[in-house]
Design a protein around this nucleic acid. Structure first.
Lengths: 140, 140
DNA sequence: ATCCTGCTTTACGTTTACGTCAACGTCAAG
DNA sequence: CTTGACGTTGACGTAAACGTAAAGCAGGAT
């Protein structure tokens, strides 16, 4: 057998890159920017569940168009220490900012979808008015 | 008076840049990429309502994280000629693609908002459990 | 005629997010 | 002990989306 020595739940960079459909270069890039920080066994990187969680957040953030630096602050927020009151209050403040941002995006998104719908209606109307072309079934 | 010679409804690049809170360089960049195409009076650019409409779409597209090239195909779709049946059918196809994309984004967005909500609840719970500190009002 | 202001083009610089070698380490297999 | 397969660190390249001079034109004010 090749290498099935994954005792707990760890992954190599190749497995991670493969699973998330990204290149090892991208994975390393995210690490360079501090978005993930895999364990090191000697020189090699060992990825844990925590890293996968973060990668999911990273990729979703990217799909939503956030820059990596901003994504980092978000993930950091999610597993920042929140033992002290001041930390929790800071986190709550950050949460409000984030939510405002996301909701603004959703408004834009909904507006875009609405326009798309009305545009489709116009197109369908145009198409219907163009030619009441061939009916395959007997109309009567 | 300086220059109020706006007979119909036209704007200079400075006015446009100002109104949309972007730089003239950005405006010209969008033109370079074919996202807008203002009239030319001699050498000067003259912007019309059509250009403003497009700029609104551009900026919303940007807020949603779309690349400019993709934004261009979208706006072009919106005012493409749709006189012939084939054109309309092509447009309808494009619309479906766009909608799928936007809806996927909305799913990501909603997921992000949900996680934010549950995270906030955790934070608030932590905060409440931390210290039932000073009550300003008489509790009983 | 000249100056100033605003607009124009040209072109190189910058940031983000990686791609793409290059060159070397390493560990199990032959 | 050499060969691969896989992993590592530079380091330069690239595409997108502008930023930032640099330098010239053009029309009104002085």
């Amino acid at each position: 057998m090749a290498s099935e020595a994954t005792p707990g739940d760890t992954w190599t960079i190749a497995q991670i890159a493969d699973e998330f459909a990204i290149t090892h270069r991208a994975v390393r890039h995210y690490e360079d920017l501090g978005l993930i920080s895999p364990e090191r066994r000697g020189t090699q990187r060992v990825y844990h569940r925590r890293d996968r969680t973060r990668l999911n957040l990273i990729l979703r953030g990217k799909r939503l168009g956030f820059p990596l630096e901003e994504i980092r602050t978000i993930i950091d927020l999610y597993d920042a220490p929140r033992g002290k009151r001041s930390q929790l209050e800071y986190a709550l403040g950050q949460i409000d900012e984030r939510r405002a941002d996301l909701e603004a995006r959703r408004r834009d998104l909904d507006a875009a979808l609405d326009e798309l719908d009305t545009f489709e209606s116009r197109c369908r109307a145009d198409l219907g008015a163009l030619k009441p072309t061939q009916r395959t079934s007997p109309t009567g």
